[in-house]
Structures are given as C-alpha cells and as structure tokens.
Design a protein around this nucleic acid. Structure first.
Lengths: 118, 118
DNA sequence: ACAATATTTAACGCATATCGCAATTATATC
DNA sequence: GATATAATTGCGATATGCGTTAAATATTGT
C-alpha cells in the first residue's frame, strides 16, 4: 500500500496542475455551477472550459448532472474524494518529514551525550 | 487573502504534477539524498533528474546542500513549506464543500418542515 | 598534471496540452 | 417545424515538457 494509491494521486495532481482547472475547483467548492457560468467567470471560451471539465471529470474531481428544468445545461459539482487522497498523501509526507527532524534532533543529543568532538 | 497565495500553490501543483518529481518527494520525505542516488532509484538519466530537481528547487519544494566531505555531491532535502500551503488550500476547499452539504441538508429539513410537496 | 567522478547545461526530437474558431448534437421555445 | 441556446467535439496552430546523448564544469584522488 501507499504505492497502490499513488497512481490516483498522480492523476489528481495532473488535473489540478492547470491554473484554470484549479480555479474551477475553487468555484465549485463554493457551490455547483453550469459549464457556461464557469466559462464566463474564468473568461475563457466554452470549448476550452468544456475540455477542462472533461479532464476534471475523468480525474474524478467533479461530477456532472442536469437541472430538472433544462436538459441542455450541465451542472458541475465538486467530488472531494480525490482531494481527500491527496490530502492524505501530503499528511503522510509531512509525518515522515517530521520524523526526520526528530531523528536529527535525537542524533544531536546522542552526540552531545557521547561527548562533543569525540 | 486566499488569492494572494494562489500563485504559489499553482507552482507547487505544477511541480508535483510529474510522477517522477512526486516520487522524488516521496523519497526525500524519508531522508535527504544525493542527486545521483535519486537518479538511480528512479531509473532515469542524471540529466533528467537534474532538471526535475531544478524544477523542484525553483518551486521551493527542495533545497540543495553539499556534504562536507565531497563538494561534487549535491544533497537534496525536502522543504515542507509549499506542501503546507497546498494542504491549507485542500483543507479550505474541503471546508467549503462541507458547508455546501450542510446548507443542502438544512434546505431539505426546511422543506420538510414547510411540508413535503408543498 | 592527469584521470576519474558527480552533476549540470546545451542541443535536438518527440509527445502532449491548450487555445480559438467552426461545425455538430441535443434541447428548448415560438 | 424553424430558430435560438447550451454544450461538446473536430481541427489546425502554437507552445511547453520531458527524455536522451554529448559537452562543459567542478572537484577529488593519484
């Protein structure tokens, strides 16, 4: 384990690497929005937004739905699961890094006990 | 705030988007390593690794140092600060998304109080 | 001084990503 | 049924990213 979920995290990171897509995630974290609405807010063309949304959908970061009153518009909503995996990876890295610091500190203290400049 | 640190988070995400670079971060989370050591572990050429390390260094994710006994070797170590910013962004997104859920739940309950199928 | 080692930089090619415009599909409206 | 609207897909152009080999730089050791 740890390596098994790596691929999914890689996909999530690749999806979030584009600034436009990250901005979309920011907006969808507030509330779900229609594709056209997102395109207007980011000032990019509808086709460009459509592609970004496709990328996000494939990565699992967003999901698509239709409002009941108009089947032409597509509502996109955030799907936090991939972000949770990413969060876990970050926390694990932080944990390991902290362990490094502790080990270093212990090393220094041991050296001090053995006697400085031994 | 929130938008000010966005650029930095964008750079961090771009740096982590490459699977090789993310693997480097995994290795450096355990302990600092020399450039050549990293190249061998990931089975890529030294020039390729050198470029990845440059990217990581510019993004602030790693820092470079020399061992005292051999100035040819460059030791790379993790610098967790950019990851902390990324972590904060993720947590904030999660927080907003949870608020969405609560609002939705409240809406449903209000509707239930008003009376179903009003 | 010379040969070996660690790493980076230069140069090139290849694959992939992104954009805007035009065309297409699906649905709504009159 | 004709027209307008929301969104996606096709296409050509541009750009960026990554990898390899070869050359350069810095340092060590004999």
């Amino acid at each position: 384990m740890g390596r098994a979920s790596s691929v999914a995290v890689d996909r999530t990171l690749a999806a979030l690497a584009d600034p436009h897509r990250r901005r979309v995630v920011d907006l969808l974290a507030q509330r779900p929005r229609a594709a056209g609405e997102l395109a207007r807010e980011l000032a990019i063309s509808p086709p460009a937004m459509s592609r970004h949304l496709k990328t996000l959908r494939i990565s699992g970061l967003v999901e698509e739905s239709h409002p009941e009153f108009d089947a032409r518009v597509r509502i996109y909503a955030l799907r936090p699961e991939p972000m949770v995996h990413l969060l876990r990876w970050l926390e694990e890295s932080e944990r390991l890094w902290s362990a490094q610091l502790l080990a270093f500190k212990a090393h220094i203290e041991t050296a001090a006990q053995t006697g400085p400049d031994a």
